[in-house]
């Protein structure tokens, strides 16, 4: 990072140096567990289009302005892992992403950025998922995640297996982090939802696969919890995940789960998919690490059917 810092200094903006000093505090600025407050801490919506369901969910949570303040920078992490079209249910729905961008900008966000460390060729993924165009049209900046030079070393102090990771600089630089995974089948992780989606903000995923995948997913979810998790369950890939073979793998579920609690979002989404959360190792491991609330009975849930 020396070269980068050198350039930054010579540019004399001092902008990022200032903000990076400021992050440390910001990471924990938004309490994940909002049970002390009145209102819901998990919203589940069914039966609408992605944008409509998002509007309803955010409304129920008290508006996006609860999470995004004026002049803040926002990073949105959808799942853009695969070079396939939205109907294949492998990537987050573009309509959902674009609506979210609009909400953030309406709330006064200074800048909204979007990226993913894709599995297939990143440019094709960005393009064919429809997310690049949708996000740009809505006013977001679409940022690449294709090169190691975007990623910076971080410690994962609470990690049991995963002690270090390389994380995309946008996650380190942005004030607000919104996680927008898609719910789908995944033979090795069982399901990929919110916690698994964070594999797309790190560089070296091979290490995870080689060193107890489930424990690494749980470990990393202690690192920086997203301020908000929006689980897209509109097109749900029921088998052959995470890439899928054809549209026949997909069931139209027209659902959305939104929660500031990543673990709770995963538990609810797993149930929606038709799986027992306890059958998914990383959910149990994350519970042991205190990532969030696993028992949905302890949450205040708003269930909306459109």
């Amino acid at each position: 990072m020396n070269r980068r810092n050198f350039i930054k200094k010579t540019l004399g903006t001092g902008f990022f140096l200032g903000t990076s000093a400021y992050f440390g505090n910001l990471i924990n600025a938004f309490p994940v567990n909002q049970s002390g407050k009145s209102g819901y801490n998990l919203v589940a919506v069914r039966g609408g289009e992605p944008d409509v369901m998002l509007d309803r969910a955010l409304q129920s949570l008290g508006g996006i302005s609860k999470f995004v303040k004026k002049n803040q920078t926002v990073v949105i992490k959808p799942n853009i892992g695969w070079d396939v079209v939205p109907e294949r249910g492998a990537n987050t729905h573009p309509t959902l992403v674009s609506r979210l961008v609009k909400h953030c900008l309406d709330a006064g966000a200074k800048k909204v950025t979007i990226f993913d460390n894709t599995c297939d060729n990143w440019k094709n993924c960005y393009k064919n998922s429809g997310i690049e165009q949708a996000a740009k049209d809505a006013g977001a900046q679409v940022v690449p995640g294709n090169s190691e030079s975007y990623y910076q070393d971080v410690d994962v102090p609470k990690g049991i297996v995963l002690k270090k990771a390389k994380v995309h600089e946008l996650i380190l630089e942005s004030d607000v982090f919104i996680n927008v995974p898609i719910l789908k089948s995944h033979r090795s992780a069982r399901l990929t939802i919110a916690m698994k989606n964070l594999m797309g903000i790190v560089w070296d995923r091979r290490y995870w696969h080689a060193n107890n995948l489930h424990q690494c997913i749980a470990d990393f979810s202690t690192y920086r919890k997203p301020d908000l998790n929006i689980v897209d369950a509109y097109y749900v890939m029921k088998e052959n995940g995470p890439r899928g073979v054809s549209e026949a793998d997909v069931q139209k579920m027209k659902s959305l789960i939104v929660s500031p609690d990543m673990l709770a979002a995963d538990v609810a989404a797993a149930k929606l998919f038709g799986m027992e959360p306890d059958d998914i190792s990383y959910i149990k491991m994350a519970d042991a690490l205190g990532v969030g609330i696993k028992d949905l009975n302890k949450l205040s849930i708003d269930r909306i059917i459109i």
Binding site: S188, H209, N211, L213
Partner: peptide, 10 residues
């Protein structure tokens, strides 16, 4: 332990 990286990408 679970892995499955190969199958994911296929």
């Amino acid at each position: 332990t679970d892995c499955g990286a190969c199958s994911e990408h296929c």
